[in-house]
């Protein structure tokens, strides 16, 4: 009984907040949407919408902080239990603690080296590992393209690999491959452009369908497992 009451309340809350926020966002774009007596509600709806958006963004930030704290606590506990992979967990915890600790020391002017440790860590650790992983991706991508043709040769696979080769070939600064450049440019301007637009439109339509499900109270995420 109590459970279904909370479910109903949750659906009602989601519906109300979604409608108020959506109305506020639409009014931002089209101020003449409401006319007559309804126009008096306009400033109020805008204010509520702005407040809800503010609370939403701060709540998401709080959730991320809680998530990071949880991640660190899980790895700290794991490194304390000395189970498999506890060393990696300790390294993760230590790295995060170093960044947070150095930032604190820097802010309190307790570091006397004069160097910006936080920026240095960002540039020499985070950017380095990120770019090295992105560079490593090259091998995975080439291997993947090879696997497409090695496992099962069909029309679509061949078309895919041909497109990849065309894009790669046209990027090479060889005069023998110069005729590929206009073909590559046309491919990017027409079929690739059309495909990308189609995929984006598909995503937008799917988002609208999911949003409409929430607006009519049909979304399952608001119900607990026992309600269904």
């Amino acid at each position: 009984m109590m459970r279904s009451f909370f479910t109903m309340l949750a659906v009602l809350l989601a519906l109300t907040t979604a409608l108020v926020t959506l109305a506020g966002l639409l009014l931002e774009r089209q101020p003449v949407l409401l006319a007559g007596a309804l126009a008096t509600w306009e400033p109020l709806i805008r204010e509520w919408s702005a407040t809800l958006l503010q609370v939403f963004s701060i709540s998401v930030a709080v959730s991320i902080i809680i998530g990071i704290l949880n991640l660190l606590l899980v790895h700290l506990r794991r490194s304390g239990r000395r189970e498999t992979g506890c060393g990696y967990s300790f390294v993760l915890f230590l790295s995060a603690a170093t960044v947070i600790g150095l930032t604190y020391l820097e802010r309190e002017n307790l570091l006397t080296t004069g160097a910006e440790w936080r920026v240095l860590l960002l540039e020499q650790v985070q950017v380095t590992v990120e770019s090295s992983l992105a560079g490593l991706l090259l091998f995975g991508l080439v291997y993947g393209a090879w696997r497409v043709m090695a496992l099962r040769v069909n029309g679509w696979g061949s078309l895919f690999v041909l497109t990849v080769l065309l894009v790669l070939g046209a990027a090479l600064p060889l005069p023998e491959l110069a005729p590929l450049v206009p073909l590559r440019d046309w491919l990017l301007a027409v079929p690739v452009n059309a495909g990308a637009r189609g995929i984006l439109l598909g995503i937008a339509l799917a988002t609208i369908v999911v949003g409409a499900r929430v607006l009519i109270g049909q979304d399952r995420s608001l119900r607990s497992g026992r309600d269904e």
């Binding site: 459970r3 909370f6 439109l201 929430v214």
Partner: peptide, 29 residues
């Protein structure tokens, strides 16, 4: 705390849905 937790989640889902709908309609479609 499940019921109360769902109320907080409902608020986030509601506002998130509105932002996603606005983005999908006015930003993409």
């Amino acid at each position: 705390g499940d019921g109360l937790s769902r109320l907080a989640l409902a608020l986030l889902i509601g506002v998130g849905t509105a932002v996603a709908l606005d983005g999908a309609i006015n930003g993409t479609l």
